[in-house]
Amino acid sequence: MGDIIQRVAGKGGNAYLDKLLQDMSRGTARGSVAGLSRLTANYKAASVGLNLRVALQQPTSYARALAVMDARYLFDPRVMRRGGWEKALRYAPIARWKDWGNFEINQGRQFQNILFNTDSAMERARNASMKLAGTMDSATWGRIWNACELEVADTRPRLTRGERGVL
């Protein structure tokens, strides 16, 4: 197995996979977030939270989807319909993950807090400050969901709306 990995991924392949599996099993954000790391994490949270410049940039990631999706779906006026994000939350785990409040600032919430709502007051305040960027993201992802719906309806006409796995 190790040989195969090394052949495909090169010398560091095994180390990469080991680290990836370790990180997946125990996470990267918590445990190590103390002392100076906590200061770094807090600094980043304070820089991103309620930052209108950051919030304004969130929807521009929509254009990156052009790399993997046709412009006629992404720029169809019907993508502006409401409800896309709610459907994404319901059917796509990745959307739920995003909704739980994970941002790319090493500040991810612990599952314990997500499941039992046990965030401290300070954590609640920090999470609240991230809502603005989160809302912009949700709006963007909702549009992507709608664009995907248009694409699937167009490219797989034999599927029926409401069918399992289709919507």
Binding site: L20, D23, M24, G27, T28, S61, R64, A65, A67, V68, M69, A88, Y91, A92, P93, I94, A95, W97, K98, N102, F103, E104, I105, N106, Q107, G108, T140, W141, I144, W145, A147, C148, E149, E151, V152, G165, V166, L167
Partner: peptide, 21 residues
Amino acid sequence: MAQRFTDVVDQTQVVDNVLGR
């Protein structure tokens, strides 16, 4: 549908999870 959405998001959007970094 969800699969296509996940595929698009995975490839083009930023998500703060282990696999996204």
